[in-house]
Amino acid sequence: MKQPLTALAEGEICKVNSLLTEGILRRRMLDLGLVEGTYILALHIGRKREIAAYLIRGAVIALRKEDAERIIITNISKYL
């Protein structure tokens, strides 16, 4: 099932399906290694889910809700 990254709960892992972003933000996300099939693990969901920290290719990256919503993911499962 395709869902936005914001649907991921703390401690869950998923795979990137596609990016709905354009321009510079799209380039930045690609630079972080967010290509199709990349695993994302949600480490910390911040206050009111406004911001969250994810483990992406070995680095911890924080994304705002608005930006995370535009990352479409699949294959959500529990990690550990």
Binding site: L32, A62, L63, R64, D67
Partner: peptide, 11 residues
Amino acid sequence: VSSSFVLELPP
């Protein structure tokens, strides 16, 4: 519009 926010939390 608020621009994007990509922040790395280094070890």
